[in-house]
Design a protein around this nucleic acid. Structure first.
Length: 558
RNA sequence: UGGCUCAUGGUGUAACUGGUAACACGUCUGGUUUUGGUCCAGAAGAGUCUAGGUUCGAGCCCUAGUGAGCCAACCA
């Protein structure tokens, strides 16, 4: 299976815009996209939507897609985030054309700022942040002009140079665009283009004392790279007027101007996408880290065992529009199962074991049975599993008393041991507290799976999994539940997100018994523990610890 | 109370730019099955936020209203 080839979605409104541009004469070879993360955190499933969108366009239009780090704020950004972001994108299977950094353009941006000043389109304001904020006013009425708004070009040039040379302290002054203090769009009320920050930048080190703001850096970066369509989320809609204005004021060398268009970000039920809140639960120790298998981060999903193709399929099914949305988590689960069903290796693991003794099986005997690795695809081959008189089965696969709808093991009823024989429950042994510690059964020696005998072909309602008590591997298994109790944990912005955490979202089974083949469990494989779900070996641990990715679809009603 | 954006089954996305709503997930039936999985067959569920208007005809166009989101960081 290979990335988005077989996807069949309708063309979304952004693709329509691109196609319109094309039919209006835009040269297809000039199409270019970009994914522009700020390296201040880990990527999550919401970013995956943007990644799939941009790189998806790259594929459908055979256009380059740049990875550009929006690294204009050295106080928040860090090289470790750059590395994790690159790793996640690669893992998803996408290849960027060039690896770019807004900081690569700092010189050019500086020159253009001088150009703006010379054209009376920017000025140095020497007021403090609070004053500027107050002067900006409120949306419903005009703001006031800064007293420094009419400084001469020479004065501005001189001051700006001094800002750059470090003659001022942070907060002393900023460079502002001179636009319109009465605009109903607050972003047009003389936005800040440069501020002074005394902090080493992870790439430019201590070269700069001033750093461009998002508004000044982003559109110009798009312009420099020749991005044709700059796609971002809805909250940047109000920035578009400024985006276009700034590009219209820089010296023109190119005929193609980037076009910003906005789409709705992804929201998933029972989880959150806010980097800040995600950081909060990481820092408070409620999860083990950014890559905790319960986290909606790419690294968390990876560790959980969600394959990249499932994420790509999910992003495709989710669609792209401008409407606020909350996607049902069940859709992600569906996409995960759909992929995993085809590629996972089936094995038998008993999470909560109870002993099963076959009284009419010869004492001391054992045999080797063969089992298919993946009934969806015979090229996965088969493996051997051992069978003997004493086995483990799942504790809840037996009931002393059961109604007609229960078709696992019970006294007097037959059930099939997967890949083995048909057995019948005979009796149970309990300890002094009434807990079952052994189930005794008989087996039909002629009913061996695959033997072709009439006995083996008998229809038996239930099939259960098992592990040989004389030949198994003890493993540890993590079962997960939703991380948040609320369907929309982000709903109330003021609420303490930590209080919404499901404290029972992880359950560990450290006495699980696995068939012996799992002694060589492979990090690169996806497994299905039959009847229990899909599981992935945890890469962070030297011992064998499996994380449950998703359960099997479960329709039990009784 | 300024501006921008959005409004279609439970959820998400479509509807060839005007011809009486489709696809996916979810839900429910039934069948197959050595995984209560997969697979197969089928069903229920919206008349498109409201009110007007244009039109032979409107989810698509117009007007007004209602509801929701975003914007007043030297964050992105």
């Amino acid at each position: 299976m290979n990335s988005s080839d077989q996807l069949t979605s309708n063309e979304n409104f952004l693709e329509q815009i691109i196609n319109e541009d094309l039919s209006n004469g835009f040269n297809k070879r000039k199409l270019k996209f970009r994914f522009p993360p700020e390296p201040n955190g880990y990527l999550h499933i919401g970013h995956a939507k943007s990644i799939c969108l941009n790189f998806g366009f790259g594929k459908t239009f055979s256009s380059p897609v740049n990875l550009r780090f929006d690294d204009t704020n050295p106080e928040k950004e860090n090289i470790v985030f750059i590395n994790s972001i690159k790793e996640d994108i690669k893992w998803l299977g996408f290849k960027w054309d060039s690896e770019c950094y807004a900081s690569d353009y700092f010189n050019e941006l500086y020159d253009w700022a001088i150009y703006l000043i010379k054209n009376n389109n920017a000025y140095v304001d020497s007021q403090d942040q609070e004053t500027i904020s107050i002067q900006r006013g409120v949306p419903s009425s005009a703001g006031e002009l800064s007293p420094y708004r009419e400084r001469t070009v020479d004065e501005n040039l001189d001051l700006f140079k001094k800002m750059k040379e470090g003659n001022f302290m942070p907060g002393d002054c900023v460079l502002r665009a001179k636009i319109d203090m009465s605009s109903p769009n607050m972003h047009m009320r003389d936005p800040v283009l440069y501020r002074i920050i005394n902090h080493e930048h992870h790439r430019t080190k201590d070269k700069w004392k001033i750093y461009p703001t998002y508004d000044w850096a982003h559109g110009q970066s798009d312009y420099i790279e020749g991005i044709s369509h700059s796609l971002c989320t809805l909250e940047f809609q109000v920035h578009r007027e400024l985006y276009d204005w700034l590009i219209s004021k820089i010296p023109k060398q190119k005929e193609i101007l980037p076009k910003q268009r906005e789409f709705a970000r992804l929201n998933l039920s029972y989880t959150i996408m806010s980097k800040r809140k995600l950081a909060e639960i990481v820092n408070s120790g409620l999860v083990s880290g950014w890559d905790d298998p319960r986290m909606p981060t790419i690294s968390g999903l990876r560790r959980r065992g969600v394959p990249p193709q499932a994420i790509i399929n999910f992003c495709d099914k989710v669609g792209v529009a401008k409407r606020e949305n909350i996607i049902d988590y069940a859709l992600l689960d569906f996409c995960t199962r759909e992929v995993l069903n085809k590629i996972s290796y089936r094995v038998m693991v008993v999470l909560d074991p109870v002993e099963l003794e076959i009284i009419n099986y010869p004492e001391g005997d054992s045999e080797t049975l063969t089992a298919e690795n993946n009934q969806e695809d015979e090229t996965y081959g088969s493996r051997e599993i051992s069978f003997s008189k004493n086995l483990f089965i799942e504790r809840d696969d037996f009931k002393e008393q059961a109604n007609r709808k229960y078709f696992r093991l019970t006294i007097g009823k037959e059930v099939r041991l997967k890949n083995g024989y048909i057995i019948k429950g005979e009796s149970i042994e309990k300890d002094s507290e009434g807990n079952i510690n052994k189930i005794v059964c008989t087996y039909d020696p002629k009913s061996k799976s695959g033997s072709g005998t009439p006995e083996s072909l008998r229809k038996v309602k239930g099939t259960i999994h098992w592990v040989d008590k004389n030949n198994y591997e003890n493993i540890s298994v993590n079962i997960f539940d939703k991380l948040f109790l609320s369907e929309v944990p982000d709903e109330n912005n003021e609420a303490d997100i930590k209080k919404l955490i499901n404290r029972e979202s992880i359950k560990n089974y450290n006495t699980a018994c696995a068939e012996i083949s799992l002694k060589d469990a492979d990090f690169n494989k996806y497994y299905q523990f039959q009847r229990k779900g899909y599981f992935k070996l945890d890469k962070k641990n030297p011992e064998i610890i499996f994380n449950q990715t998703v359960t099997l679809r479960d329709n039990i009603k009784f």
